[in-house]
Simulated assay, not measured.
Amino acid sequence: MTYVMLILGFVLLIKGADFFVEGSSAVARKLHIPAMVIGMTIVAMGTSLPECAVSVTASIAGSNELAVSNVVGSNIFNLMVVCGACALWTPMAVSQSTLKQELPFSIAMGLILLILGYSGMEISRADGLIFIVIFVCFLMWMVRAAKVNPVQQEEEEAKMLSGWKCVLYILLGGAAIMWGGDLVVDSASAIAANFGLSQNLIGLTIVAMGTSLPELVTSVVASRKGEVDMALGNVLGSNVFNILMVLGAAAAISPITFVQENMMDIILLTGMSLIVWVFAWTKKQVRRSEGIIMLLVYAAYMVYICVRN
């Protein structure tokens, strides 16, 4: 039954992501909002619901090690695997604003997490509240940017889906993503636990990959539909959401204690973020060859944490 639930979770994630991207793309066109903004807000928050549920639940249960490893592992998976897989499908063009604003902001949030973790080896309740406030400011900034730089769309293109269908697609897709993510995580965690894996290793691998499957599926589907900006925006938005809102909410409930392994993983996350930034700067896009390199980097990271744990 556990394996059946795992397969069912995958099916829900794939179909849910398809509906979610379709509805979100239609909303972006109707409201003349850049796809990057939709990807970094609505889609990112929807696909990050599994991470939020896992980390907050872990914080309530006092398993803070799982909360941190889940977020850091998910962010590394998003950068290396999700971006790498999308680049394999089609080269990911990166806009100037993404290079100068969204990507540096995502890297800065990782550095702040590193500094806070190093200074007191924990994220206190006050730090968690600060993270939440920064996230609210981030959302306000994105909405303001959308109003200042509206996107002009063809009228026929804007009428692809009616308003109620957009809402229905987003709600059904979001529900399927959340439920499918939960099924995958619960089933995979149960299977992994039977093999005697540590909680930190499970958080960095099975749980992180399971909760990041919505981002992977949604971004690949978005790339396949030609919504490359939404694919990249989903990754960056999810990473920002994971650090600021997921860890912020978990820390506000219960202070999150850091261990030495967490610090090393955050340093590697920052390094990988810089790799993606350099790749994006070279040709203003992430090419297929660079996507392969990113996937290989993640494979090497998997070997490292398995040997370490």
Rank of each mutant, 00 (worst) to 15 (best):
Y3I: 07
L8V: 15
I14A: 02
F19D: 01
F20Y: 09
G23V: 14
S25N: 10
A26L: 02
K30Q: 15
L31F: 08
H32Y: 02
A35W: 00
I38S: 03
T41P: 06
V43Y: 07
V43I: 06
E51A: 03
S55F: 10
T57Y: 10
A58R: 06
S59E: 06
I60M: 06
S63Y: 09
L66H: 02
A67E: 01
V68F: 12
V68A: 06
S69G: 10
S69D: 13
N75K: 01
I76D: 06
N78R: 08
A87C: 09
S95G: 14
Q96W: 09
Q96G: 11
E102P: 02
S106V: 04
S106W: 03
I107H: 06
A108C: 14
M109W: 12
L111V: 15
I112A: 15
I112S: 05
I112K: 04
L114F: 04
E122Q: 13
I123P: 09
I123W: 10
R125S: 06
A126T: 15
G128W: 13
F131N: 05
C137V: 13
C137H: 03
F138H: 12
L139F: 11
L139V: 15
W141T: 06
M142A: 06
M142K: 04
V143F: 15
V143M: 13
R144D: 10
K147M: 03
Q153E: 14
E154Q: 14
E155I: 13
E157L: 14
G174H: 13
A175Y: 11
M178K: 11
W179L: 14
S198D: 03
N200G: 11
L201F: 12
L204D: 05
A208P: 02
M209N: 09
T211I: 02
V217F: 14
T218L: 03
T218D: 01
S219Y: 05
V220W: 12
V220S: 13
V221H: 10
G226T: 04
V228T: 12
M230W: 08
M230H: 09
L232P: 02
L232Q: 00
G233M: 04
V235Q: 07
V235F: 09
V235T: 01
G237C: 10
N239R: 05
N239I: 07
V240H: 00
V246L: 11
L247I: 09
A250F: 00
A252S: 12
A252N: 02
E261N: 15
N262T: 08
N262M: 07
M263R: 04
I275S: 01
W277K: 01
W281T: 12
K283T: 07
Q285S: 01
Q285D: 02
V286N: 02
I292C: 10
I292E: 04
I293E: 00
M294C: 01
L296T: 00
Y301M: 03
M302K: 05
N309H: 08
